[in-house]
């Protein structure tokens, strides 16, 4: 749990920090879809290195990203292994007949997941919750004409993201508290492990409800009303850095399209 870094904004002044959050969100959606459409190892390796460049530009320590990847590495390795086994099984061949493309397919899945995590980590680390909220609200604004309350959706998403790291740290504390009361988290039996998890999840759930209630009261005390016309302290405007970012994203997409055409 210590390696979970999702939702933690790290303030900074890098060129990635300065990019308009709307561009970051749109770019991530575009990149997600192009990563999924990537067909071969060359295109994915290209995307992966392009993303590594973004990570270096963000001036956030690489070790932070590696920590979030470490947690996922175990998960992705298992899924890749299952993928490998299934492919061998469906092709009706023995495990010793594993051809290059089956192993490559598993590696492609691994790289796809890594790239997705890198994109989300870059966005989470370099965009403040307020920036994300403003971006979501701005991007959803056309849906106002369809009768959707976009402000409400934006604030809901922002609050959930804001509370994720808090709940994680509460869960960490609760593990220590219950350990001191004799609950053994490192039990080998699955039933005992599930029981121990219950002793942690129930108080954390109660705490999250309390925090939600406190937040609702704080918002009400400051006369927050979803339906009222809201003004913004920071109005999002596109700058020169944003144009550079757009060009960079399109270059990656073009690279993926071209690499997809390479036949190995």
């Amino acid at each position: 749990m210590q390696n979970l870094t999702f939702g933690k904004y790290i303030s900074g002044n890098s060129s990635i920090h300065k990019i308009d959050p709307r561009i970051k969100i749109m770019a991530s959606i575009l990149l997600f879809s192009f990563i999924f459409s990537a067909k071969n190892l060359v295109s994915l390796t290209f995307v992966f290195f392009a993303l590594l460049g973004t990570v270096l530009l963000s001036s956030i320590k690489l070790s932070r990203f590696l920590k979030s990847l470490k947690f996922i590495l175990i998960f992705t390795s298992i899924t890749s292994f299952i993928n490998l086994i299934f492919e061998v099984y469906t092709m009706n061949k023995s495990i010793f007949d594993v051809k290059y493309n089956i192993v490559a397919n598993s590696f492609i899945t691994l790289l796809k997941l890594f790239s997705l995590i890198l994109i989300s980590s870059v966005i989470m680390y370099t965009t403040s919750p307020a920036g994300i909220s403003a971006a979501i609200s701005s991007l959803l604004s056309p849906f106002k004409y369809l009768g959707l309350n976009t402000e409400e959706i934006a604030i809901t998403i922002t609050i959930s993201m804001r509370f994720l790291p808090i709940l994680l740290s509460e869960a960490k504390n609760m593990i220590l508290i219950q350990k001191s009361r004799g609950v053994s988290i490192e039990e080998k039996s699955i039933i005992l492990k599930a029981k121990a998890l219950l002793f942690i999840s129930v108080p954390v759930f109660v705490l999250s409800l309390k925090k939600a209630h406190e937040l609702a009261e704080a918002m009400e005390s400051r006369c927050y009303n979803v339906n009222s016309q809201r003004t913004k302290y920071k109005i999002l405007k596109l700058k020169r850095e944003d144009l550079v970012a757009i060009i960079y994203i399109f270059a990656i997409i073009l690279g993926v399209i071209l690499c997809n055409k390479i036949k190995i």
Binding site: E170, N173, M174, L176, I177, Q178, S180, R181, F199, V202, P203, V206, L207
Partner: peptide, 11 residues
Amino acid sequence: TVFQHPEKQLF
């Protein structure tokens, strides 16, 4: 051990 705000642990 009695942690800070131990009332949180009651469930």
